[in-house]
Design a protein around this nucleic acid. Sequence first.
RNA 1: GCCGAAGUGGCGGAAUCGGUAGACGCACUCGACUCAAAAUCGAGCGGUUCACACCAUAGGGGUUCGAGUCCCCUCUUCGGCACCA
Length: 820
Amino acid sequence: MSQTLPSGRRYQPHSFEEKWRKTWEAEGLYRFSERPELPKTYALAMFPYPSGNLHIGHWYNYVAPDTRARYLRMRGFNVLFPMGFDAFGLPAENAAIKRGIDPRQWTYDNIATMTGQFQQMGTMIDWSRQFATCDPEYYRWNQWFFLQMFRKGLAYKKESLVNWDPVDQTVLANEQVINGRGDRSGALVERRKMRQWHLKITDYAEELLDFAQLDLPERVRLMQTHWIGRSEGAEVDFQTPAGTVTVFSTRPDTLFGATFLVLAPEHPLVEALTAAGQRRAVEAYQEATSRLSEIDRQAEGRPKTGVPLGSTALHPLSAEALPIWISDYVLASYGSGAVMGVPAHDQRDLEFARSFGLPIREVVRGPAGPLDTSRLEEAYTGSGELVNSGFLDGLPGGKEGIHTVLEQLSAAAGVRPKVTYRLRDWLISRQRYWGTPIPVVYCPSCGIQPVPEEQLPITLPEGVAFLPSGQSPLSLDADWKRASCPNCGGPAERETDTMDTFVDSSWYMYRFLSPHQSEAPFDRELVHRWLPVDVYTGGIEHAILHLLYSRFWTKVMRDLGLVDHSEPFRSLRNQGIVLGEDHEKMSKSRGNVVDPDQLVAEYGSDTVRTYLMFMAPWESGGPWDPTGISGPFKWLSRVYTMLAGESEGPEESVRDQQLRQAVHSTLQRVGDQLEQFAFNTAIAQLMELTNLMVKAKRSPISAQVWEESAQIFNLMLAPFAPHLAEELWSLRGQAGSVHLQAWPAVDAAAAQPDLVEIVVQVAGKVRGRVRVPPDADEALVWQEANKLENVTRHLGGGQVRRIFVPGRLINLVPLGQSSM
RNA sequence: GCCGAAGUGGCGGAAUCGGUAGACGCACUCGACUCAAAAUCGAGCGGUUCACACCAUAGGGGUUCGAGUCCCCUCUUCGGCACCA
């Protein structure tokens, strides 16, 4: 490093960063206190899982919101910017299985390490509010919420086909299965029939589609909308020997085109509808289906398979007898688990019909004329006139005409409008140890009994056995399992499943207001004042999972009378991901991981902070460039010398007015850009101003203007490089902390340049520039433009059409010249 | 397959409303300082060209006085969904 500057004037972050962090801590600079006289803002960044070490992605996620929170604080807001740990989950348990470490110990050790690393970041997080979701004082409220939901029928146990992850040895929610694989383990999930606890998120499906109170990035909104998957259509009843089979269809207009019914292999009426001669085939098919993994079942271009049951259903309008089949393309968990087969107008039904030689009947006549049903390859799903449809003939068929047709149909028996959602109820049971015990006991005589609230929390037992078999340690702990029935007092057994960890994160934002509250999950008065979160930041990977669940949770809390709003957040911003040097996702196996501790040791915290915000737009992220970090380091070094050192070098020609103009327009822009999360361009603006100020310092600038510039620069630097800004503030002899100062006010008049450059175009091509006052009118610009030889030459005399954009350009288009 | 986003120098990226394409930074080149190097400071840096000028924002068309920005088609990359009736 440089030896040419005396050490007192060289930027040596290690000589002061630690010192300032200790001072801030000692003075409680970031201790949150409610200031009712100020406007409030709640800035929340998704809390991390305590995996062991803080990685560069954590820095990326937290440094930018911290910078923005610091800015808002200087702008006079009462800012809450808390942090905690999402501390339940499998890695702790896996460490226990592999290395015999207590999950509790492992987790709290990691939290201690990571909070230590967090300190280095120099954030304004108030650590006195920190909590972990594995604290019994926290998860007891998960149990409490569960009991409230149980009471309202929103938490219930049902048997259904669930996703079983054979590696993590637990069931998973639908949202945790990506392309048929467990989101954590990557293992192919299996279908298993199990009795499991669910939360009734489907009760809120319609309301969750309403985003009026929530400013989400468009793609997140779309993802949630698709996930909820609202479909309008109708339910149609078909009478069978075993009772009514109800089907759901989005195209009830094609009812007369139905030539068969298909049930899911798991449909409850299958057994009753199976003819004796078909029993073997049907059971074999059910057996084969149950063995298929999700991936196999969904494989692309898989030929349609199925088995007829040997019985028929009565078409409600035509009274025809339709054969009933089962096939795995019909899902038990959607709609009613049964469909009417309309092969002419549904591609799947067509493929099925052609596989088994079932009749195909056209009922929608498209513009292309009648369908050749004998060799139809593609079902016609467009609109047209209904044909072969009895009393519906002549009505408009297709999605658009559906309401007209439904009106006619609803008079008929067994047809009624129906809205169906793709969203399934949230399966929260997990066959694991390190989570919230579900507060329920099983009594041989009274059945399922909720644990009385006064017995909460049901804490996790210690010193249990962790077996690699994946069996839940809770089910192996006979002592823990033993309980008495709250109803009859007789012996009973505890539920040994624990809750999905997404329960923990569904309401943690409420807990930060009163993290140590022991009477209730949160202080309702404080929550009333501080929620919803104003700006929530986090990764796109939670677009559906966590965000949908926490929206649901808030609506439930509202209906329980706990809160008076319907959304936990007002707005959401997604940060991007820092990729490795090789443009790939960072991973230990790829060896492209960047270690923030090492970077801090080399460059100091402020440089790491600044580079992360400068390297790319925060919301897009990008590859790590190991040489790029020298840019921000050099910049901060220049800033240091500029504000703390003596000026040197030749005189330049920066004038007072020019400097003030640059300072105040930068001030305006940096503020605007921080509000828009444009951290990279905000820093670019500051770098640009630095370049000018370094020159100005060697110019005959008045001491007063220089002082004003230095002061404003120092304040603007504070949110980005908090340590350096504080050091400079102190070196410059200013009192107090720079972080307690107000953001400087823009002098709008000074920010206005005295002359602006106007581009002179001839026929759309730039031929010159003129410098005029910003408010110059067309006549003046035209007059100035005519003085430019290059312009007049290209104009060549004659009539000219002028297009004038004030402050920007003048385009001179010679008339009479054919531009064609 | 369906839905969505994005393609700008060697690299990361700038560019309010349709108005100077390439801000800021990295890398690179030259110069100053140095015995030398590093650091620092100064200058240059899309392509063709001596220059005038021309070409250039994935490719092709269009609208416009003017298009990275708007419209249509194509290609590529990334993300989501994936037999949801």
